[in-house]
Design a protein around this nucleic acid. Structure first.
Length: 839
DNA sequence: AGCACGCCGACT
DNA sequence: GTCGGCGTGCTC
């Protein structure tokens, strides 16, 4: 690309001049106004990617958020350097959505843009150096020093160099000064090169050259000519077999994949000769990364119960934008979704179905693909950048009217959504914690849907209490779906008291007697078992039996998790790794023991307890690879695994008939979590895990190991009494001011220095206290984890009155306070993080 | 976030 | 004496 500096010619009729407010990926909470050059005025609009100069030398790519005619008053706007698109990558509705998100979640619109655009669409510009063509060393009046010579010599052989190249060449840290001097001496030119990260997938194909395809005589003559070259003849015959141009010459233009020849075991060098002699030609075709498949178009049959629910949902859409479908596990929500999606698509609208990450690679997606074929786009985190760009473009082109995706798929360029479904609506993984925007995909999806004037359906077997609250207060429509599909039975629950077994010496490798018996029974009947423990690694930590020493992370305030498999200790917060010491570094004792239970350790125990069983483990560590998860699932589905132990992951979308026993090894860990949502989460998790037991005709058994068998959560779960549990929990929340009765905003201050972090948090807290709205404030307190990645953390929790404009006022004042903090020399290095709806 | 400008320590 | 460290101020 040519140098992008230098101004464009500008006519003086300022009135008709167009300006663009551009969203840039910088942490400054506003858009930046640029002039649109005359010659580009016709070619740009909202949503186009443009290149602009920002600051002294940086060239950035941004997205046009607004086009207008108001010249800025306080400064002279710079001019857009270039327009990168021939159509809008982002539509106006999306810009509105981004702006809402930035405001609601107290972040910058540039941060939203960053999260929204797939990496393949985020262009990066890199500064490069090239020789100034007018430069002549002999006539130049400026002498060069040694280091400058080095660079010029390098440029004699290489057309361009990056800054890094120059740095390496000269061997200094700050190359800036040297390059600047070279620019002044007119020896080099610095320019910005933008690289489009997206590369289309290309297929190499071959076909016959001009006369041969359509002229049979020419073709026959050709065969006579090469009769003596059997290898070339073979290639030609193979081609004609694939593409019968004799019957239909028009077929030739489509050609055939080059690798067909190689796959047939024919000579590639003969093909090369054919190409060289002008018999065949090679060409490239841009193809989609996604297979083209017809949907089955099958007629979905609904049970009576499902049909009733479907009718109620449609009725609900009449009066409510948002509807909650409360359907127990296995009640057949997928079929209802399919019906609704089909109808929405038939009416010409787009549909978005959100699923939590881990549910995406499972049966539901496969099922949907069967029905919808390649009309359906899939968008998830294991897709490559290129694949994501293709989904993005597919939504714009209309190829994908329906997308199933994770959290980030709410950012796809939909322009006419008619239906948004959020499945497993209660899932906490819909919340993005870090980095900003710290949004909740369910809540954002509702807003998105509202912007499109579309309908929203939230689905869950265990709705979040917020959503259920909204349903009970008639803000949302509410539809219940009770019957288990195909008459499956509810599981039987067994509470197994760990302490009792321990006393009687019945606890073996952390498994109670009942648990072992039930597993054995299932194994005897060739049935499958799931064991749930929401903790990966071998053990939460190791500890010295003599002095009690526990290894801790150097950078965070947590103990290191012991991973036996990789023989190391790892920090789950910052990724820090350390080898396991042979002896205790504190007292020299050799008695280091693993304490607590992780999935790895359970896997090992199971192998000892049930030596004949085939055991597998499913957690973040065993499913890292792109298809790791799928492989495990297929293995399990095919019956190659008898016992599967895993974390959260096994609670999602695992619908296997042969699972009859589900074990929860340490339910207490779920019960006692230090936040107001502990009860809700415990109910949800236990119910979801239990839901994996017993499908169809087999009755399942759920064994729960606990030290508190009389805890009220168990009672509620066993009775399936969601509503009563909800009501009880709500009284608590109302009494102690927690959502949904208030709005929570968590503000944390992070700094490498403990005192500074604390002082800044205090100061911030005081400023916030002065905001005149109805609110309650907690803190500032040391974070639950006091230090992460060498940053000390202090938190203030604000509970805002939900009625009136308390929220708006508070956020507005907060913005001002943050600006003040940021301009205060004492606190400017403190990182303040605002998290709206933090849990 | 970058990046420039500006003011103080360890080196030729 | 300078080179170059990073404090602080600004970016349409």
């Amino acid at each position: 690309m040519e140098s992008l500096f230098g101004d464009t010619y500008e006519p003086q009729d300022e009135k008709s001049r167009l300006f663009a407010d551009v969203i840039l990926p910088v942490p400054i909470p506003k858009m930046f106004t640029y002039k649109i050059p005359r010659n580009l005025a016709e070619e740009v609009g909202i949503g186009y990617r443009v290149m602009v100069q920002f600051g002294q030398k940086k060239v950035l790519t941004g997205i046009i958020g607004k086009v207008h005619q108001k010249p800025p008053k306080e400064y002279e706007a710079k001019t857009i350097l270039d327009v990168l698109d021939t159509y809008a990558m982002v539509n106006p509705l999306q810009i509105k959505f981004w702006a809402w998100m930035a405001e609601y979640y107290c972040c910058h619109i540039g941060e939203v843009m960053n999260a929204a655009l797939p990496a393949g669409l985020k262009l990066s510009s890199e500064s490069k150096v090239q020789l100034n063509p007018t430069y002549d060393a002999d006539t130049s009046p400026y002498p060069l020093d040694e280091r400058e010579e080095v660079i010029l010599q390098a440029l004699a052989t290489k057309a361009e160099l990056t800054y890094e190249d120059c740095q390496e060449l000269v061997g200094v840290k700050t190359i800036h000064g040297i390059l600047k001097s070279l620019v002044i001496k007119e020896a080099i030119i610095i320019f910005e090169q933008v690289k489009d990260k997206y590369t289309p997938k290309v297929e190499n194909r071959i076909r016959l050259c001009h006369p041969y395809a359509s002229d049979k005589q020419a073709l026959e003559r050709l065969f006579q000519e090469i009769a003596a070259k059997p290898k070339q003849e073979e290639v030609l015959l193979k081609y004609l077999q694939e593409i019968p141009v004799y019957q239909n010459p028009a077929l030739n233009s489509k050609g055939v994949e080059k690798k067909v020849i190689a796959d047939a075991g024919l000579s590639m060098s003969s093909l090369k000769t054919l190409i060289k002699n002008g018999v065949m030609e090679e060409y490239k075709l841009i193809i989609s990364r996604f297979e083209d498949k017809e949907g089955s178009g099958e007629e979905i049959k609904l049970s009576e119960e499902q049909q009733r629910a479907l009718n109620e949902i449609k009725q609900g859409f009449q009066d409510h934008q948002v509807n909650l479908l409360h359907g127990i596990t296995g009640s057949g929500k997928t079929e209802i979704y399919i019906k609704l999606i089909e109808e929405a698509l038939a009416s010409g609208s787009q549909v978005l179905l959100l699923l939590p990450e881990i549910a995406l690679t499972t049966q539901m997606v496969g099922r949907l693909q069967e029905v919808f074929g390649s009309r359906m786009g899939v968008y998830h985190s294991k897709y490559s950048d290129n694949e994501r760009v293709e989904v993005w473009n597919g939504v714009i082109s209309g190829k994908f009217a329906f997308v199933v995706g994770v959290r980030s798929s709410i950012f796809l360029p939909f322009d006419s959504l008619g239906l948004v479904i959020v499945d497993e609506e209660h899932e906490s993984s819909y919340k993005q914690y870090d980095p900003a925007p710290r949004f909740h995909a369910r809540d954002a999806a509702i807003m998105l849907s509202w912007l499109h004037q579309a309908k929203t359906l939230l689905g869950s077997a265990t709705p979040s209490f917020e959503s259920f609250f909204n349903a009970r207060t008639k803000k949302y429509g509410y539809i219940q779906l009770n019957q288990r599909y195909g008459d499956a039975k509810l599981p039987e629950y067994i509470l197994s008291d760990i302490l009792v077994d321990k006393k009687k010496n019945l606890l073996k490798l952390d498994f109670t007697r009942v648990m072992r018996e039930k597993i054995q029974e299932a194994l005897n009947k060739q049935e499958q078992v799931l064991i749930f423990q929401n903790r990966r690694g071998y053990a939460p930590y190791i500890s010295c039996e003599d002095c009690g020493w526990i290894p801790e992370c150097e950078h965070c305030d947590v103990s290191l998790t012991y991973h036996q498999f990789s023989e190391e200790m790892r920090c789950h917060y910052c990724g820090f790794k350390e080898n396991v010491p042979k002896v205790c570094p504190a007292c020299g004792s050799g008695k280091l023991a693993a304490v607590g239970l992780g999935t790895e350790r359970i896997e090992e125990s199971l192998a000892l307890l049930f030596p004949e069983a085939r055991v597998a483990r499913m957690d973040l560590d065993s499913t890292r690879s792109k298809y790791g998860y799928q492989r495990l699932l297929e293995d399990f589905g095919a019956g190659n695994v008898d016992i599967l132990v895993g974390t959260q992951m096994i609670t999602k979308g695992l619908d296997f008939d042969r699972v009859t026993v589900v074990g929860i090894l340490d339910a207490d860990r779920i019960l006692y979590f230090p936040d107001f949502r502990a009860g809700e989460r415990a109910f949800q998790q236990i119910t979801q895990v239990a839901g994996r037991a017993g499908r169809r005709e087999r009755k399942g058994t759920v064994v729960i190991q606990t030290r508190k068998p009389d805890h009220f959560v168990f009672d509620a779960v066993m009775k399936g009494d969601y509503k009563n549990f909800y009501v009880n929990d709500m009284t608590e929340r109302q009494k102690f001011f927690y959502p949904p009765f208030v709005k929570l905003i968590k503000i944390s201050s992070r700094h490498k220095d403990y005192k500074t972090a604390e002082k800044a948090a205090r100061h911030l807290h005081n400023l916030l206290s002065d905001i005149q709205v109805r609110k309650i404030m907690l803190g500032p307190e040391k974070g639950l984890i006091g230090k992460i990645k060498n940053q000390y953390i202090f938190e203030t929790l604000v509970k805002l009155d939900k009625s009136g404009n308390a929220q708006a006022v508070f956020k507005h004042e907060l913005q001002k306070i943050l600006e003040e903090i940021y301009s205060n020399k004492e606190y400017r290095s403190v990182r303040v993080v605002v998290d709206v709806d933090p849990y």
